[in-house]
């Protein structure tokens, strides 16, 4: 990283753009990681990916310098704040992973008209997928119509034309490895024609 901080910028000759490293965990510039709430993880990431910067930021000198500029009172408050933030972040993560573990993706095959089917996929949003994009992807992959539709319950689901339930299952498990296989459920839904 170029140290452009202390060089006053003469407007005439062009300086190349600075290259800033961003933390892979919290996306902030690493020097701001301490305010993100995921300090520990950020620290590990930086150690792996950019040891020089890591040494610079997390050395004992830097820590001492950090502390010396603030009054004791402010330090305490900042520390408390940081703790609270970290707790909040970890709580949110726990909540999310729990949600992930419990929520299910349901792939439903709906009979539309003897031998014709549509496939309805619901529950994708719990895994952080964007329905609109995934729907487009399905359309491209299976060369059929695919859209995001509103369900009666108020949520949204993806409807793909044709019976592609097995293919969707395979595709999901392959492309998104973070989705456990047992969380995907295949359901068949036969609509009975009302006897008129």
């Amino acid at each position: 990283m170029a140290d452009t901080e202390n060089t006053p910028a003469p407007a005439t000759d062009l300086k190349p753009a600075r290259k800033v490293v961003y933390c892979g965990v919290c996306t902030l510039p690493p020097e701001y990681c301490e305010y993100g709430g995921t300090v520990k993880k950020c620290q590990d990431w930086l150690e792996d990916h950019n040891p020089t910067l890591y040494a610079q930021l997390y050395s004992a000198d830097a820590a001492a310098q950090n502390l010396s500029t603030l009054s004791v009172d402010a330090q305490k408050r900042a520390e408390k704040d940081a703790q609270k933030k970290a707790a909040k972040a970890s709580a949110q993560e726990a909540r999310e992973s729990e949600k992930r573990a419990t929520s299910k993706i349901i792939i439903k095959r709906v009979e539309r008209n003897k031998r014709k089917y549509v496939t309805e996929i619901s529950g994708l949003e719990a895994f952080g997928l964007e329905l609109k994009k995934v729907a487009k992807e399905f359309g491209k992959k299976f060369a059929t119509g695919s859209s995001v539709t509103k369900t009666a319950a108020g949520g949204e689901e993806i409807t793909v034309q044709g019976d592609v339930s097995d293919d969707v299952f395979d595709w999901l498990t392959e492309k998104y490895e973070e989705i456990p296989e047992e969380n995907i459920e295949l359901v068949e839904d036969k609509k009975k024609k009302s006897a008129a």
Binding site: A9, A17, R18, Y32, Y35, G36, N66, T69
Partner: peptide, 21 residues
């Protein structure tokens, strides 16, 4: 971050950073 010298700048003290963020 790429072109910091192109803008008018001010600086805040360390105590304020956490509030800003």
């Amino acid at each position: 971050h790429k072109y910091p010298w192109c803008f008018t700048r001010v600086r805040i003290d360390r105590g304020g950073i956490r509030f800003v963020l």
